[in-house]
């Protein structure tokens, strides 16, 4: 008896090893690609600690300790810039996901193939437009003299507003533009998950007498939980980054409102452009990555404690 189990155990082990190997072989092309495309260039993070000399290359350049990092802290605006970056990201994550989930759920409730198709197509349009062009569109609305919005305000007897010189409007404009541009894309991501939810679960809920709202709460949202957590965790990892186009192009580079438009990326770009200083640029990127990484580790740790299944890793 014991011998038999030992043999079958060995067999099982061998089968198991074989399966692991086959599964691993599946991953190989992607693994090679990620190693080349993502991991190899990480050597470049060394540049953050070097005074980069173009003719000496990465290895030949001199080490310079942390001196590439100091410019990020010496500025008076440091706190302001970090506040902007994190603040906007928090609002974007919160609003973006709430709206996207709502739209995805409603899309699922809709009847009729044709209208569903049209809605899905159209809400994706903003996502297709590049930020530079978005900045033209925003300008078409907000231009003080020829903008659509000011013409509208005037026709109702109001005063023209000088949008591009007043900081107070911009937090709202950024949120609206970000939401407008991104909601179609994330809605469709969520929608793809929603339609994958087992329909028998809804039927069971209906049998139990759950109304529409209860079905959403008890079936749809739990089904979406994994996706939502993934999306949010990923966004947290990018907490210290910002959409450069949104904060630099869309306000038309207007200097007067920089107190609300300057994020880390914008500050670094403005400060280092023309200097070709890749050491300092990498230093900023390095710091953004490390901070994001720590945040995600913490968040993931919390998720893992509560609900291991949905943790990212």
């Amino acid at each position: 008896m014991a011998a038999v189990t030992a043999v079958s155990g060995k067999k099982r082990k061998r089968a198991r090893r074989k399966m692991t190997l086959v599964l691993f072989s599946m991953m190989l092309p992607g693994l090679v690609y990620l190693l080349i495309n993502n991991y190899m260039p990480m050597v470049g993070l060394l540049i953050a600690f070097k005074k980069y000399n173009y003719s000496a290359g990465i290895w030949g350049s001199e080490w310079c300790g942390f001196s590439n990092f100091t410019y990020l802290f010496k500025t008076q605006d440091a706190i302001n810039i970090v506040r902007n970056t994190i603040g906007y990201n928090l609002v974007f994550i919160l609003l973006g996901n709430v709206v996207a989930v709502a739209v995805a759920v409603m899309l699922n409730f809709l009847r009729g193939k044709m209208n569903k198709k049209i809605y899905q197509t159209v809400i994706l349009i903003p996502f297709l437009i590049s930020m530079v062009v978005v900045s033209y569109i925003v300008y078409a609305f907000l231009s003080q003299e020829s903008g659509f919005l000011n013409k509208l305000i005037e026709s109702f007897g109001g005063e023209k507003i000088s949008w591009y010189t007043q900081a107070k409007y911009w937090p709202f404009i950024f949120v609206i533009v970000n939401l407008w541009k991104g909601f179609g894309y994330s809605s469709i991501l969520y929608y793809a998950t929603v339609i994958g939810i087992d329909s028998s679960l809804y039927e069971a809920a209906t049998v139990d007498g759950a109304n529409r709202w209860k079905q959403v709460v008890h079936v749809t949202l739990p089904g979406l939980k994994g996706t939502i957590i993934t999306m949010v965790l990923l966004a947290i990892g990018r907490m210290f980054y910002s959409d450069f186009g949104l904060f630099y192009q869309v306000p038309m580079r207007s200097g007067l409102i920089s107190s609300v438009t300057d994020t880390i990326d914008v500050f670094v770009y403005k400060g280092l452009t023309q200097l070709n200083d890749i050491g300092r640029a990498s230093a900023a990127g390095f710091l953004q990555s490390v901070m994001g990484f720590l945040l995600v580790l913490t968040a993931n740790y919390i998720v893992r404690k509560i609900d291991e299944e949905n943790a990212l890793f």
Partner: peptide, 27 residues
């Protein structure tokens, strides 16, 4: 696959690429 032993490691391997990149010049 739950029976794939390295899945956590490789998930992390993937995730890591989303946070750190070497920057444009090295790539």
């Amino acid at each position: 696959r739950k029976e794939f032993p390295f899945r956590y490691f490789f998930s992390f391997f993937v995730f890591f690429t989303m946070l750190f990149n070497g920057g444009l010049v090295p790539s």
